[in-house]
């Protein structure tokens, strides 16, 4: 399995990275908070930690810490537009249920 970016997501990530001027890729993960158990983490990555699992997707580095991996393995990060709002979306096959807003989830 792997954690990947959709083509659209990859375009946006590389845009953001070049605007930001630094960073080696994007870090995906989860943290244990939120109304429904877990919350996603989506951050710029400035450096890889030694224990990170690193995937390559559309030429970009996707970093995942090993603790988060079981929860998001198989995820494709997509970029979507909903009305006035646009942003990234985790298409995560591990999710069993999530809270109404989708900001947090359970596996």
């Amino acid at each position: 399995m792997a954690v990947t970016l959709s083509e659209r997501a990859a375009q946006h990530v590389s845009n953001f990275l070049s605007k930001r001027g630094k960073g080696i890729g994007v870090r995906l993960g989860v943290k244990t908070s939120g109304c429904s158990g877990m919350a996603y983490k989506l951050e710029f990555a400035d450096a890889a930690e030694p224990e990170d699992v690193v995937f390559e997707s559309h030429g970009l580095k996707v970093l995942v810490d090993p603790k988060s991996l079981p929860y998001i393995d198989g995820t494709e990060l997509d970029y979507a537009r909903e009305g006035l709002n646009e942003g990234f979306k985790f298409n995560n096959p591990n999710v069993k249920d999530q809270c109404g807003c989708g900001e947090s989830f359970n596996v």
Binding site: V13, F16, V26, R27, K31, A39, Y40, K41, L42, E43, F44, A45, D46, A80, E82, N85, E86, G87, F88, K89, F90, Q98, C101, G102, E103
Partner: peptide, 13 residues
């Protein structure tokens, strides 16, 4: 689901 933005390292709320 809610749409997320990329945050600075460590800044996820």
């Amino acid at each position: 689901m809610a749409l997320l933005q990329i945050t600075e390292p460590g800044q996820t709320t």
